[in-house]
Simulated assay, not measured.
Amino acid sequence: MASDSHHPLLYVALTKLRPTQVTVGKAEVAAKRAAWKKIGRKKRAELLQTHCFPGVLGPKQRVYIVDHHHLGLALMEEAVKSVPVVVQRDFSWLEQDVFWRTMEFNRWAHPYDQHGHRVDYTVIPGSLGEMVDDPFRTLATRVRVAGGYAKDAMPYSEFLWADFYRRQLKLPAGKISAKVMQEALLLAHSHATAYLPGWTGTIE
Rank of each mutant, 00 (worst) to 15 (best):
R44L: 02
V12L: 05
K170H: 05
G129T: 14
K37R: 09
W161V: 05
S190P: 12
A178F: 02
Q21I: 02
T200D: 11
T20W: 00
L139H: 02
D152Y: 00
T15K: 15
S92E: 05
G58L: 06
K175L: 08
E77P: 11
R118H: 07
W100L: 03
A27R: 04
S177C: 02
A109D: 11
G198Y: 10
T20N: 08
R44T: 01
R101F: 12
T20Y: 02
S5P: 00
L47Y: 07
G40P: 03
I203E: 15
L73M: 12
T23N: 11
R167C: 12
F53P: 11
Q49K: 10
L10H: 14
V66N: 01
A194Q: 13
G25L: 04
H117W: 05
F159D: 12
G147T: 07
S127C: 14
S92P: 10
T193R: 01
V83E: 14
R144G: 02
M76V: 11
L17D: 14
V86A: 11
A2M: 03
P135G: 11
A109N: 09
D134L: 07
V98H: 05
F53A: 12
H189G: 15
A35C: 02
D113H: 05
G148W: 04
L17P: 13
Y112T: 05
L75G: 15
R18Y: 07
G198K: 14
L196S: 06
R144E: 15
A30V: 10
G126Q: 08
D90A: 09
V66Y: 00
K42M: 01
K81P: 00
E104P: 13
K81R: 15
I203G: 13
A150I: 08
K170V: 04
T200G: 12
T193L: 12
A178N: 03
H6N: 09
E183W: 00
R33S: 15
K151A: 11
Q168G: 10
L17F: 02
A2R: 08
H110F: 07
L73T: 11
P84I: 04
M131I: 11
V83H: 08
L71H: 02
V123Q: 09
R41W: 07
L160G: 05
